[in-house]
């Protein structure tokens, strides 16, 4: 099990991680969620020893990670940062071979070759194993990197936003693969996810971060509810259940955008096709319609003011700006 104890991490002025403690449950997918700049990637970096810990301890099976040789840690923990084009002519097979480095130091033995073939087959890449990485589609490339991680044969796998730059089909495929890693190969996966719905559908545990702190953690069913998520993302969540999975609707309630805007009563009357004529009947109709307009206007104003209170549009924009600044 990987445990983080009182981690403080600073860059420049503020704390990027502020007294973070976390036990990562074995044999499950733990998703890290939070707004931009909440410290998810930093936490992942610290837990996976890519970033040196400034203050605090990371324990790997109750041993401080600092006292273990990096090569030994590499046999236990594999981490994959975002994998854009690497700009090198390396084939899939060669990339997967790199994964064996911690075990064989570059000299492949029979065991290593077996493991490489196994990983390539597991990721269904055997037909294209001699293709160069840069010739692949985004989904294939991501699979090739996962194959490398598999060849590394570690118990723990950390993935930093593996769905970035993947379209929907490949994203779903990737999450299925990650589920398979846990179910079939008994791995422990920690994953940074941007899309809360992917976390809801595929993760076992969710850790929510905000301003460098863990503000909530727990099983998916306890975490995916509007009380928790509203707080994490400073945004209104609407949660529905579909086929046993919870789905978050977070597109906001900007209903006033859909309401037609009328500047005057006449405009309203024109819009609803009112005929201006002089008969008594028409006049009475016109009167009632003018009353309708005022009723309508009253409701519109009410909806708009309600929206402003709950959606707090400006706040959301500001928090986003802060997020980008921190990045």
């Amino acid at each position: 099990m990987i445990q983080l104890k009182n981690i403080f991490q600073t860059y420049g002025k503020g704390h990027v991680l502020n007294d973070v403690s976390l036990d990562i449950p074995d044999n499950a997918i733990t998703a890290l969620i939070g707004a931009n700049g909440a410290g998810k990637s930093t936490l992942l970096g610290v837990a996976s020893r890519l970033l040196p810990v400034i203050s605090g301890d990371v324990l790997l099976d109750n041993v401080n990670i600092r006292s273990i040789k990096t090569r030994e840690v590499a046999k236990q923990i594999a981490v994959l940062k975002q994998t854009q084009s690497i700009g090198l002519k390396v084939t899939i097979a060669e990339l997967v071979e790199f994964g064996r480095f911690p075990h064989c130091g570059g000299r492949l033995k029979a065991v290593d070759k077996e493991k490489i073939d196994e990983s390539i087959n597991f990721m269904k890449l055997n037909d294209i194993r001699d293709k160069f990485i840069d010739e692949l589609s985004g989904g294939q490339r991501q699979r090739a990197f996962i194959a490398m991680i598999l060849a590394q044969d570690t118990k723990y796998v950390f993935l930093d936003e593996p769905l970035n730059n993947l379209d929907i089909k490949y994203s779903v495929e990737m999450m299925h693969i990650i589920r398979k890693l846990v179910k079939r190969l008994n791995k422990t996966v920690v994953i940074v996810l941007h899309d809360i719905n992917f976390a809801s559908a595929y993760a076992d545990y969710i850790v929510a971060m905000k301003d460098g702190k863990i503000i909530n953690q727990g099983a998916v069913k306890d975490m995916v509810c509007s009380d928790v998520l509203n707080n994490v993302f400073d945004h209104n969540f609407n949660i529905i259940e579909h086929m046993g999975k919870r789905v978050c609707l977070y597109y906001g309630n900007h209903s006033h955008d859909l309401i037609p805007n009328f500047n005057s009563e006449d405009e309203f009357l024109n819009q609803i096709g009112h005929n201006h004529s002089a008969t008594e009947l028409d006049k009475s109709i016109e009167k009632s319609r003018r009353r309708d307009f005022f009723k309508f206007q009253y409701f519109v104003d009410k909806i708009k003011s309600k929206d402003k209170k709950t959606c707090s549009n400006e706040n959301e924009i500001e928090s986003r700006k802060e997020g980008t600044k921190m990045n």
Partner: peptide, 15 residues
Amino acid sequence: SIIGLGEDFSKNLGL
């Protein structure tokens, strides 16, 4: 060759 793939990549492989 591993160095050529970047710092994070190398650190992951225990280099």
